[in-house]
Design a protein around this nucleic acid. Structure first.
Lengths: 209, 209
DNA sequence: TTAAAATTTAATCAAATGATTAAAACATTT
DNA sequence: AAATGTTTTAATCATTTGATTAAATTTTAA
């Protein structure tokens, strides 16, 4: 049962917020609508009154989660006025901020796709992403050639940035256990990475500064 | 329903194999014991006859999955007769092999821990891992100092290797969609990474060869 | 071959869970 | 205030699902 603050927050919004929290934590199959109702502090029937079904509510959470995963990033990467180096700095920073606020987000999205691959083939938003990605890759390629950067598929670089940034969040409990770090130390470790990842990526590319 | 081959494979083993496949794909909550029974081609009651409960069977799968995730790696990293450079090469290779055979393994382990963190705090095997990890870090530190490698927490390097290697598998469907690769092209991409990741890691460390 | 043990099956149970319903409480409009 | 529309509640339904049972079948041992 969540705290009963803020009467001014609508029931609909309370359910939405609770659904984000519980779905991202437990996944679709592991979430009971009663968990969401409890977390939101509302009667179970209200969930179906406002959102019709568990599936419908889940779709809203998933669609918004997918957007969060990509929208900010694509804006940065699509900006034609920034150099590769600047793109790397900004992209890592905004991703770090996103993940610090939503640590469960990537594992939620990825494992829902894994457990039900067909369902997400046609997921809204994804088709557009491909076109954007093509553009970025092309732009990166020419920029990299112009800067005399050693020949490498730019898609590897995007995956490397995502890997180095996202994985430590996806593996948070594992990382904490293996390194015997408490929450503060873990986030200190993350902040070190915020500084280091752009350096690493650039050293991979052979960029000096 | 799976193929009914090999009468010589015991029912117990058929259930075990099916449980690995389904649990790793769908997770604990998303798996119905009937799914496992169907996949194994056996009567549902046999699952409980041999393994007593869904939980018991899951624990076996999870324990073995955790072992797979670490055992091979720790043997490589703990070998005191190899240089950092050799350790990196071997570790990436064995992990790639593991992941190509079990692409769903990392996401399964990580998301089960995420959805039920308390349950795995005391998981067998994990406590020993910490001690091993300490040893590796220490050895790496002295080796890195001796080799004049720039000062960096060796734990970052371990996390970087894991990130660059594991993430593209955890995000396989995403990677395939975003890059419009079919399965062959995806695995070609993975094989490129098998070659590139050790190079990248070494370039992060300032190792030339 | 026969008796005992192990394995397998079909049928069923009980609890969990997504969803609905009808009535109650509350808010808004006239 | 009365009527009307909206939101909330408690109770209940129907399905799914993990587990059990008792009988049937197969295997093993004597």
């Amino acid at each position: 049962m969540a705290e009963d603050t803020n009467k001014d927050i609508s029931t609909e919004e309370k359910i939405r917020t609770a659904a984000f929290k519980i779905f991202q934590q437990k996944g679709f199959a592991g979430t009971r609508t009663r968990d969401i109702a409890d977390e939101a502090g509302i009667n179970l029937a209200l969930l179906n009154y406002y959102y019709r079904s568990k599936e419908k509510l889940f779709e809203i959470v998933m669609e918004e989660s997918l957007k969060q995963m990509f929208v900010r990033l694509l804006i940065v990467l699509n900006n034609p006025d920034t150099s590769i180096s600047e793109k790397i700095d900004t992209a890592v920073n905004i991703y770090m901020n996103l993940l610090i606020e939503n640590p469960n987000l990537p594992l939620f999205v990825l494992s829902e796709i894994q457990s039900n691959p067909d369902k997400f083939k046609k997921q809204v938003g994804i088709p557009n992403l491909y076109m954007d990605c093509i553009g970025i890759i092309k732009q990166a390629k020419t920029q990299m050639e112009n800067a005399g950067i050693r020949d490498i598929d730019p898609f590897h670089i995007i995956i490397n940035m995502a890997s180095l940034t996202i994985f430590p969040f996806a593996a948070k409990p594992m990382v904490k256990i293996l390194s015997k770090k408490n929450d503060n130390e873990y986030y200190q470790f993350i902040e070190e990475r915020r500084r280091l990842i752009p350096i690493w990526i650039k050293s991979m590319l052979g960029i000096k500064k």
